[in-house]
Design a protein around this nucleic acid. Structure first.
Lengths: 226, 226
DNA sequence: GTGTTTTTTAATGCATACATAAATAAATGC
DNA sequence: GCATTTATTTATGTATGCATTAAAAAACAC
């Protein structure tokens, strides 16, 4: 059998991280399910060593848990977890908004943020929920990037990962987020005008409201974990 | 040669994590220094495998960096890093203070927090800086614990680790933190009385001030990295 | 001496082997 | 039958070997 020799731009361990993430987000590795290292290794076509290293990383990111002899467990996210995560996101994103406003960006530098807002509007008009969710993610990621604190960026990315699956599950039981974009615009304006207090205050309120809506939904629908 | 058969309560990988942390905090593995996996493995009396796993974990915690062929680099902490870290700590600890106040604890449940404040007073009176630093750490850790958000706890612990070495280096060039404990008491009071807004506001101001003092010191003494 | 190519060295990334210990099944006693 | 012990299985944790390849050293040209 002839091996296809593809150029290896990534190490196997890196590939394992990416592929495991993809499997988790797609739900192929369901929340709460257990998987032996050997099984995952075979699935990814590599030995246990790089799989183990990848799993160790994903464990530190809170996506899974390695339990001796029970295999790798994909962590479910409970509504309590969701509350914790949203609280962290609220604080750190508000900080980012404040800092972004304090730094003072040009309209050009804020183009991506603005574009995300536009895309959300368009998606809402088209009732395209996935499109809206994608643009919303983009808005928040860009906001945090503009905040200029690499640690905040990292933590927010990590927490966002943890809720990503939940978002997919709740997307279709949510109300259309029409109010949401007014907040986004107001945050954008405050950043552009260089008004840190306003940027913080509005974004904070925005996030707290999002939290209430989401946790309310989860409880109403008895979704204890995702 | 007879092997001493000690009971192994921890895996080698866990031991490696603990010992590497200890070596880093003690400065035996100095910030900025490089160390080959083989060297560390020999030093810890185990093979490369568990050392590698430990290093992977510590990398995810921001204590070191694994660079192919260059070995494991113990990460220095620049004054910019310090600013980032303090900003994160400010936000998340303030959240914890607010939540702790909202939860409403009895005097008994707040005993450890109160004890830490007392110990700081005593240490200041005795001009025992290490003692003060230890009690200060204890205060902050307990505050965060009372906040009841496990993710906040984890992140704060991680960030605190990153500044731990810096604290040791700057401890003796700092002014005696006399004002500091008034803030601590006020935060304690607000939590005990169940006043979330006050708890948040005071702790936030306290942390921001600490940040200013520390970054000011670092720049004054031209300590670019630690 | 300086810049370029070739050779050598050696650190890592990964596969593999295996001892250990947990979990399960089988065997035994009553 | 049921409880208890023993045997068996098997997933992990770790050591080890090796191919790969980046970096260092050497050889070479000029």
């Amino acid at each position: 059998m002839v091996e296809l020799k593809e150029k290896k731009t990534h190490s196997n361990a890196q590939r394992a991280v990416q592929e495991l993430r993809a499997l988790i987000f797609s739900g192929e590795l369901a929340a709460g399910s257990d998987h032996l290292e050997t099984e995952l290794a075979e699935r990814l076509g590599m030995s246990r060593t790089p799989v183990r290293e990848a799993a160790l990383l994903l464990e530190s990111q809170g996506l899974l848990e390695m339990r001796p002899r029970k295999g790798v467990r994909i962590l479910p996210v409970s509504s309590d977890d969701m509350r914790e995560i949203y609280d962290v996101l609220t604080e750190l994103e508000s900080l980012a908004a404040e800092r972004a406003a304090a730094i003072g960006y040009t309209r050009d530098e804020l183009a991506r943020l603005n574009a995300a807002i536009g895309d959300m509007d368009a998606a809402i008009a088209a009732e395209n929920l996935e499109g809206w969710a994608e643009a919303d993610d983009r808005f928040h990621a860009e906001l945090v990037r503009l905040g200029g604190n690499s640690r905040v960026e990292m933590i927010v990315a990590m927490m966002s990962d943890q809720v990503r699956r939940a978002k997919a599950s709740t997307l279709f039981i949510r109300p259309l987020p029409v109010q949401s974009n007014e907040d986004h615009r107001a945050v954008y304006q405050a950043i552009f005008k260089g008004d840190p207090e306003t940027a913080r205050r509005i974004h904070r309120a925005h996030r707290q409201q999002a939290r209430e809506i989401l946790t309310g939904l989860l409880e109403k629908h008895r979704l204890k974990s995702l």
